[in-house]
Design a protein around this nucleic acid. Structure first.
Lengths: 217, 217
DNA sequence: TCTTAATTCAATCAACTGTTTGATTGAAAC
DNA sequence: GTTTCAATCAAACAGTTGATTGAATTAAGA
């Protein structure tokens, strides 16, 4: 009876793992079922078809992934907010500990969007980006155009994304063991935050014609 | 007789286009041959099998892609070098004009490396990264550790990569027409260069204990 | 014109794909 | 004890996959 949750969950776990490693097309239902110790028909029974199994995996992956919305006490320095947010993003992305396939699957989905992408962005990415945009806006002069603020926020997230998306390239570029050191969250976070604060201050400089307000530190 | 080059080239063109759009697994040889107006057996005849056709496409794609090594006259300001290099990288990546599938195929290969990835990085990515690393090193104090310099270079390329790799996400995040404006090379380049110079200067500040040398502008 | 080699072609191969079927299980519900 | 129903199973489905064959076609050289 409660084997329902058991088989179904095991199917999601194994499928997610294989999907994340080989992609949707290259993954066969037989492979998944064998890994899960289930019958071929189990997928049709529990999910309908392969595609709906995949969607279920993606949804499960970013449902498991804790997405915290920070509630800052009034008066919190934007620099501090940025530090916390960047560190949090990096922790999420770099974390190689527990369910690696979940993040990997989301990464794959974002790199080559399928049906599940829009929901993923709206539920998972957008909130973080909104927070980041708000923080960046605090650090920039009030008269900064929206597009510039968005671009600046992109410049920040881009640095975080690199260590997840382009890991294989990074390893090939500077050597595997050298790149391994870059997966230390604190090291990377410090670098990114320093770089970003400097970058934001420079961008701010272009839009504060008269009074020097809004610049970082 | 000269149909050899014709069919073979048409096969590479069509295959590259489809490979770049759907990936290796999801692409069928029948689809490719139909698009190229060739017989199914043509792939076996000209390339041996599907995989070697794919490799040929990747090689052709980044062979076509002009990779210039800049030869700076002595005394050129590193800020200026950075500006030129970043603009050049962006032009390459954002360029939606001529053979879109070639860049797209490289992007796909770098996101999910297959057999062709290592050669691609070594021949195509590494040289650019080396140039960038050299420029960044000029802008940083001499005592800056190698790892920090590499990280800083990563921070710069990360911003460029964003507009190519994460285009669908960007469009979903800030709206398609809004994001379209970001594909203007000059706009983006100015933003990235300003941001990067500020970031580098901030990073430099951490490693120049006594004398103030090496900082940007 | 005949020979030779390079290409192209339709037809077919075995293997694998996702999906479906119908029988079987086993534990609750009546 | 019978019925009910979710769950699993082996077996087979029809369709597609990449690969291969051998004959047909083409074009150039002698």
């Amino acid at each position: 009876m409660f084997e329902l949750e058991d088989t179904r969950q095991k199917l999601i776990d194994c499928a997610g793992q294989i999907f994340s490693a080989k992609g949707f097309e290259a993954t066969t239902v037989r492979e998944v079922c064998q890994a899960a110790g289930a019958n071929i028909a189990a997928i049709h029974y529990h999910f309908g078809d392969k595609e709906r199994l995949y969607i279920e995996c993606v949804k499960y992956a970013h449902c498991q992934q804790g997405m915290t919305l920070f509630d800052w006490p009034p008066g919190t320095l934007p620099q501090h907010k940025l530090t916390v947010l960047v560190t949090h993003m990096l922790t999420m992305m770099v974390a190689t500990d527990r369910p690696a396939w979940q993040i990997e699957l989301m990464v794959r989905e974002l790199a080559r969007p399928t049906v599940a992408c829009r929901a993923l962005v709206e539920e998972f990415i957008s909130p973080v980006f909104a927070q980041l945009l708000a923080i960046v806006s605090e650090l920039l002069p009030a008269e900064t155009p929206l597009l510039t603020r968005q671009q600046t926020a992109f410049s920040v997230v881009a640095q975080c994304l690199l260590y997840r998306y382009h890991r294989p390239i990074g390893q090939l570029l500077i050597g595997e063991e050298q790149f391994q050191q870059l997966l230390n969250v604190d090291t990377v976070a410090n670098q990114i935050i320093a770089f970003s604060l400097g970058g934001i201050r420079e961008c701010a400089r272009q839009y504060q014609s008269s009074a020097g307000e809004g610049a970082a530190s």
